[in-house]
């Protein structure tokens, strides 16, 4: 069975989730990965969407963070203030999934502006929940497509803290949560170096070369001492993901939010 780079990315992100995780899920790639995990190896995973739906089990991927499907399949639905106060700030979330327009080598994320804040070249949607997800969840995973415009030497704006601009700020601020521990792209997976906290390549997806990763990364990317090959998607993973995407496309008509 052949697969696309996007499918590999979603599968690799899904594998990082476990049955006992309580996951704060964003729309798009994170939502696809989290529900793939729930439908394959982690059936008891708890998925939480910031619209207030706790332990939701959508049969199709939501187009928006507040689709009725999320509420109808949830254990319970709480208000948005309760979600951010008791559940996120209260420390009940084990994994937060984040992405953005830009990420740097320390996992700092920009989802606010490209260019200067006062005169932006591109005005992006902004933080949403991300700024506090980045510091309140026990750890975070980042999922983004590789490109030199997205994997940058310095983020134009630091919306959500990774390990800080020099990799030391997070610890210096006394933040107790781990921060970004995994970065999955369509080319590879990366993890922070234990000392410097700089993300380095720990596995290459099948068919990807080091040169491709270097060319698509906007900083001199480091490779771990041992770089493995990401295990290829299994038939079960691919079939489950494709079924989920097909159901989603059918439910939303022309609009498929999924990868």
């Amino acid at each position: 069975m052949s697969w696309s780079a996007s499918e590999m990315m979603t599968v690799a992100a899904a594998r990082a989730l476990a049955d006992d995780d309580v996951c704060f899920v964003g729309i798009g790639l994170p939502s696809a990965a989290c529900n793939l995990a729930r439908l394959t190896h982690a059936p008891r995973i708890t998925l939480v969407y910031e619209s207030g739906t706790l332990a939701t089990k959508p049969t199709v991927l939501p187009l928006s963070i507040g689709d009725g499907e999320l509420c109808e399949t949830a254990l319970t639905t709480v208000s948005v203030p309760e979600m951010f106060q008791y559940w996120l700030q209260g420390g009940r979330i084990t994994v937060g999934f984040l992405g953005g327009a830009q990420v740097d080598r320390y996992g700092n994320l920009n989802s606010t502006v490209i260019g200067p804040y006062g005169a932006p070249k591109v005005r992006l949607p902004g933080s949403g929940g991300a700024t506090e997800i980045a510091t309140a969840c026990r750890r975070t995973f980042i999922v983004m497509r590789h490109s030199p415009r997205a994997f940058v030497a310095e983020v134009d704006f630091l919306t959500s803290l990774g390990h800080g601009r020099t990799g030391r700020e997070r610890r210096a601020m006394g933040i107790q949560t781990e921060g970004p521990v995994l970065l999955v792209s369509d080319l590879c997976t990366m993890r922070p170096h234990p000392e410097t906290r700089e993300f380095e390549v720990t596995s290459l997806h099948p068919g990807t070369t080091r040169e491709q990763v270097v060319a698509q990364t906007g900083w001199p990317v480091q490779f771990a001492a041992v770089v493995e090959e990401t295990p290829a998607p299994t038939a079960t993973e691919l079939e489950t993901l494709r079924d989920l995407n097909a159901r989603t496309a059918a439910a939303h008509g022309q609009a498929s939010a999924a990868e």
Binding site: T131, E169, I175
Partner: peptide
């Protein structure tokens, strides 16, 4: 009052 904006550029703007 809340535990927020830690390490973000938002307070600067």
């Amino acid at each position: 009052f809340f535990r927020g904006y830690r390490g973000s550029d938002l307070p600067a703007v």
